[in-house]
Amino acid sequence: MSLIHRAWSLLPRDLRREALFSLMALRAPRITRPAPDGVGPLVLAGYHSAMSGLGAGTRRLEAGLRARGLDPLAADITGPLRQGPPHPPARVPLGPGTLLVHVNGPMLPWALAVLGRRAVAGKRVIGVWNWELPVLPADWHRGFAACHEIWAGSRFTAEAFGGRGAKVRVVPYPVEPAAAAPRTRADFGLPEDAFVTLAIFDAASSISRKNPAASIAAHHAAFGDDPGRILVLKVHNTARAGAAWQEVAALAASHPNIRVLDRTLSDAEMSALILCCDVLISLHRAEGFGFTLAEALALGRPVVGTGWSGNLDFMHAPGAHAVPYRLVPATDSQATYAVAGAEWAEANAGAAAAALRRIKADPALRRPPPFAFPPPDYAALLGLTSPPSA
């Protein structure tokens, strides 16, 4: 390791982050002012190949645009922004058009620098941002000057982004779960006659925020260690979560009716897993949107979820059971959400346990009608009367 690399590694994480983002902001091309009309090719730049929540969001948005008759050019910037392995640079047509950039505020100048000055010039730039707290970290301020407009997936996130001079629209993600793969409970190691509760989370996306310990506590309060009442923890990225995951793993191991499913599943297999279960639980402390809750409702499975943050936009669905909460200071052992002055929710595990028991006792509650999420009118949002051509 060179002296420069060693000195860099010794700097505190916040200082490294600030230095990197400041450098990228200096390198980033300035967007055209006033905002162009966006007529021309539609480009979606983002983490198309990343195995993360933001990667999944990019792919969901691309699928939604195509389903609505648009044909975006996909510009994968996963490698250049260090969200995955290296790959060839993304190619973007020069000249006018609209550039949707599915990266968060601090990374937006870096993304524009990667795409290049000539590719950005003359385009309308829309940032598609995700965040899970009502307070933004200070380093998000760079992103507001790097776009003409911001799309927020929920009213909750739109409020966090508002008040800084940028135009902010609430543009929900399309909720269109993949057709389920032909899988049965036996394929997932689950008994046919058990009542099965499912929790899904990415261990690298802040275990403190996803709060699986609360779901474990609620399940145990509802059913104890009854072998006919199973809780499945579907998780991935555990190797990146360190001690935070080890604590959850130890807690799960202390209950014989908790199963840990730590492997990658395709979208079709995820739909099958949800359909093999009776209820999905998410006692999260904060969600920007709440993909797993939304997809469970769309597939016709009830959800027991914290009644706060982005998922409130669809917790009026017939299968949704909102859990009361209290606000507490946001503390995150993985440091992703360590923002001064921020609060998030602590769900009432006892109320969640009562909801689980009600659902178990009533077959009708276990099979609500699939909830239809209205698809966004992307053509209208983009000011297009017909799909743009490349």
Results as ranks from 00 to 15, higher is better:
1 M>N: 10
5 H>A: 15
5 H>Y: 06
23 L>F: 07
23 L>Q: 04
33 R>E: 14
52 S>C: 13
62 E>G: 14
67 A>D: 14
72 P>R: 07
91 R>M: 05
102 H>A: 11
110 W>G: 03
112 L>R: 06
115 L>Y: 05
118 R>F: 01
121 A>L: 12
122 G>A: 06
130 N>S: 15
131 W>P: 09
132 E>K: 12
134 P>F: 08
135 V>I: 10
137 P>S: 06
138 A>H: 11
145 A>H: 06
146 A>Y: 07
146 A>N: 10
146 A>L: 06
149 E>I: 01
153 G>P: 14
154 S>F: 03
156 F>G: 01
160 A>S: 14
160 A>N: 03
163 G>F: 11
168 V>R: 06
177 P>M: 10
190 L>D: 01
201 F>L: 13
207 I>C: 04
207 I>E: 05
228 G>F: 06
238 T>R: 13
243 A>K: 09
249 A>H: 13
265 L>K: 00
273 L>Q: 11
274 I>W: 02
275 L>T: 12
275 L>E: 09
284 H>I: 03
285 R>H: 11
289 F>I: 01
291 F>M: 09
292 T>A: 12
292 T>R: 07
293 L>W: 00
295 E>Q: 15
296 A>K: 01
301 R>P: 00
302 P>Q: 05
303 V>M: 00
306 T>H: 09
312 L>D: 08
313 D>Y: 10
319 G>R: 06
319 G>C: 04
329 P>D: 14
329 P>I: 08
331 T>A: 13
335 A>D: 13
336 T>W: 07
339 V>D: 10
349 A>G: 09
357 R>I: 11
362 D>Q: 10
363 P>W: 03
366 R>V: 01
366 R>T: 01
367 R>L: 06
373 F>Q: 11
376 P>A: 09
380 A>E: 15
385 T>D: 12
387 P>C: 10
